[in-house]
Amino acid sequence: MKLGFLVDLNLCMGCKGCEIACKVENEVPLSSWRLRVKYIDIGTFPDASRSFTPLRCNHCESAPCERICPVSALHYLENGIVNVDSERCIGCAGCMMACPYGAIYMDPETNTADKCTYCAHRIESGMMPACVVICPVEANIFGDIEDDSSHISQYIMEHQGDVQVRKPEKNTHPTHFYVGGGNQTLNPLAHQRLEGYNLFNKITHLDHIGDPNHGVIDRFLAPFTHHEEHDNSSMMDWAESGNQTHEEGGH
């Protein structure tokens, strides 16, 4: 069995239901995302269109994150899912440097690496990932890509020639596919991030990795001191102080 994912971008309407469902199901902290839907505007009025691209871990068959992890915190499950053991993670961020898809984040509550696991805990109980269940147009298709009779395999066969993966040149062999994607939606270098064009202004870069209230000294003192547990409300306090992002320095 090898579990895979397919998103039909022709069906996705950018409702962000999957993003929210993922947040709730996995209790993903503020300022972190396992799954996000990116809006890209192509062309100029009146010849303009907007595309929506859900982005999550690709669960690569040759995963660079699994290879670089020094303690096997990132590891394969038998069903092909690249899982994370947060108890073992040392927080070196090697996986964040290795993942060509920027799919891994440093959880600000646990200070360990985390990412989409295709909702491995739900799969274990015979359920579908939360993002699949919530999608109102069934744009998210999930299943066994080694089973020819599965819905995802049938879908891939029906859309031969229009099935793509992100950055195939990286030879990571993703098990996450897109139908209806193009260079402009799947290649981050083919679109620009310009200040003034965002629906939300000044959404650019996070200037912290992991817990923003957890400095270098705190990392060492944490086991010996009472460390206030961080949750979404404490993250909101910090975000409201205006330190969360800074303007884009891109080119």
């Binding site: 809006y39 890209i40 192509i42 907007r50 939606t185 991030r193 310009l194 965002n198 939300f200 200037d207």
Partner: peptide
């Protein structure tokens, strides 16, 4: 006219 621009996305990590 063929340029693609990100109009909504999350903040991305900078220096790790």
């Amino acid at each position: 006219a063929t340029q693609a621009i990100v109009t909504l996305d999350v903040p991305i990590p900078e220096i790790i």
